[in-house]
Each structure stands twice: as C-alpha cells, then as structure tokens.
Design a protein around this nucleic acid. Structure first.
Lengths: 206, 206
DNA sequence: GTCTATAAATAGATAGAC
DNA sequence: GTCTATCTATTTATAGAC
C-alpha cells in the first residue's frame, strides 16, 4: 500500500520508521491469523522490536488493528471510486475488474486482512461497511443502472454484479493457497486476467 | 451438515449426544474466530458443558478442530463429485452451481470454517487440498475439457471456471455480513440463484 | 461422566531503570 | 526511546474427588 498513514501529529524520522515497521509486521500477522488469533509477541518479533516498545507507539493491540483497517479502507475503495460514469461502459467495468485483480496481486495481505475481518463477522468495520461502502456502492449502482437502461450493457442485477467482481478478484488473494494447491505449479495470476476479462465481457455484452 | 461423524468406536447415546454438542459448538466458535482465535472456554459455554468435560471427549483443542475439518471435507466435495460426465453439459454445470449455492445457504458455518482455514494459510488441510481436492478437480476438468472440445460448452479455462463457481457461491456465506451491509434489508439468497444461473449461462453458452 | 481445583504456559499491558 | 522485570488475566490441559 502507499503512504505513511499520517494521523496529524508531527513525527521524527525514527518514529515514522518504527510506526511503519510495526504496521507492516502487524499486517503480516493479522492478515494471517485474524485479530484474536494474533499476538503482540509475534508482531513485535516480526517488527524486530520489543513488546513494550510496540506499546510505546500504540496504546493497545486493538489500536494497531484499527489503525490498519481504517488506514486501508480508503485505498481499498479507490478502484470503485475511479469507475467513471462518463467513460465507455464495458471498457470502464473491465478496467475496474483489472484494477481489483491487480490489488489482489500486489496487496494480498491487505485483502486477507479484510477477508479475515469480514468472515469473522466484521466486528470492527461493520459501520464502515454500512456507511462509506454502501454509499459508494449505491452511487455507482445508479451509474451502472443508467448504462443498462440505455442498452449499453446487459441487464443483470447491479449489486450482485459488483459482488461478483469483488468475489472473483479477491479470491485469488484470499484463497491463494487453495488455488495454488489445485493448479499445481501453474502461476494463478498469469491466466486470471484474461480469464476474468473474458467472462465479464460475456456477462456485460447486451 | 448431516451425520453423527462416527469414527468407528462404539458409543452410548449420551456420548454421542455430547460429542455432537461439542462439535456443534466448536463449529460455531471456530467458524467465527478461526482456530487460534477460538478458546475452549467459549466452546464449552456454547455447548453447555464444563471445560474439563470437553477434554474428556476430545484430547485437545486441536483434535476438535481436526475432527470438524476432516469430517466435513468429504461432504464439502460432494457437489463436485455429483457432476455427471454423461449428463447434459450446461444443465449439469448450472446444477452444480445451484448445489454449491445451496450449501452456502444451508451451511454457512461450514463454509466459513473452511474460509478461515484457507485464508489463514490452510496449515491443517494443505495436504488434503493438494491431494483429495486436486485429484477430484483434475478428474472433473477432464470431463469439462471434453465438453469444450466437442463444442457443447464455450471454451474457457476449466480450472478458473471451477474457481469462479466456488468463489461466487461461497461469497454469499463467507462475506454474508458485507453483502447484507451493502444490500440493506434485501435478502441476498433471494436474488442470488437467478443471478448466478444467468451469468453462468452466458459464460458457458458456446 | 462430571465436577472443582489447579498446574504451567502465554496473553496484554505497565513500572521504572537507563 | 528502549529495555528488563513484572503484574494480572487468560489459556490449554491435568489431577483427583465424587
């Protein structure tokens, strides 16, 4: 992911570096074990810092997790935000699929962090799902419905269409081990882009 | 899921009842928190038994989890096993999609149990994925390739086609909270079957 | 079979020296 | 800022009475 997640307070270079170390390590650990399954010990070891030093930078285990989730939520929605109502509908949607798949390829830990959180009932981000996410989706669904009503793309359930895009693209990050187990040695992300573009073209063509 | 998961040893009615209570409670807890995020305390409370009593029936936390996973793996693969090489290809595949979606609707806990395990790297079932699962998939891919080569269904990457079916159907169980958050009050499983059949018909039609 | 009590290890978090 | 030492609660698991 990008940035140094600056929450406003000024920081020295060493502060910034250690915060980043901690958040990176926490992303490794939380994304692989979920919140409750992760320990500060593991995060500290992974970050190369002592446990008390971790808690010098963040007040609690919960605070680290929350910082990660809220810092990432925005970035995670960017691909959908970029869906342009004035673009050419089919290429626009295929490009969205491509961006989402690229996110899975480049940021599998972030994808699994969300997957863990949501599979486990989204206790910490339910309000964000019902708020920011739902509002953005509602807004884009209007655009998609417009494209359908003018016959520019096929008529399918717009919400479930978006679920399909999320599901299919994130699958390659979240279920990576299963995909690789089944494919043997073939590289998943080599075939996936063409495959997904192909099927979404069929789904969307009027 | 079905059965009383009999592993061979004879059991009294009270033994069977308590084993089932424990496995049911463990399914609730493990499917919501993953293995490491779950505690025997929670499982015991959920089962209405004391913690030592749990460990009278199962030797360890790990044993409960393993029993759940291995007992379920077979059932989980049944819908794919039922894919009939001699059936009518498109209806056959659509029926498979329907069976998988029905599994998500009826057994969301089981779906989330696997989702947690796989998202977290499948430490306990990797060998089953590389063994039983891969072999079954390889076998069915031969069937699907046959249907493609004779022009009965469209030519798409058969492995990724199966990933798509798993991903799209399980999404409604594993990411249920997100789906519901976005849909508001609309019931996901009302629209999903028709939507999925519709898009897979487009994908598969030559 | 089921319980209370408890062991032994690990968890998150704090105190205080440096 | 970073560390060692430590507190307190929780965790898995066992011992042993009933």
């Amino acid at each position: 992911m990008p940035d140094g997640t600056n929450t406003g307070r000024p920081r020295t270079r060493i502060q910034q570096r250690n915060r980043d170390l901690i958040l990176g390590a926490a992303l490794d650990v939380f994304s692989l074990n979920g919140f409750r399954g992760s320990t500060l010990d593991e995060i500290a070891t992974q970050a190369g810092l002592s446990k008390p030093n971790l808690l010098y930078y963040f007040p609690s285990k919960d605070a680290i997790h929350t910082e990660l989730l809220s810092g990432l939520m925005d970035t995670w929605l960017d691909p959908l935000r970029d869906l342009d109502a004035h673009g050419d509908p089919i290429p626009e949607l295929l490009a969205y699929v491509e961006r989402k798949l690229e996110m899975s390829r480049l940021y599998p830990r972030e994808s699994r962090l969300f997957a863990n959180e949501i599979v486990q009932g989204a206790p910490r981000i339910l309000s964000a799902l019902q708020g920011d996410l739902k509002h953005l989706v509602d807004e884009k669904v209007v655009v998609i419905r417009g494209w359908m009503d003018t016959g520019q793309i096929a008529h399918v359930h717009p919400y479930h269409l978006l679920f399909s895009i999320w599901s299919l693209t994130q699958h390659y990050a979240d279920f990576d081990v299963q995909v690789r187990a089944v494919l043997g040695q073939e590289e998943p992300f080599q075939e996936a882009p063409a495959y997904l573009k192909g099927i979404f073209l069929k789904i969307l063509t009027p």
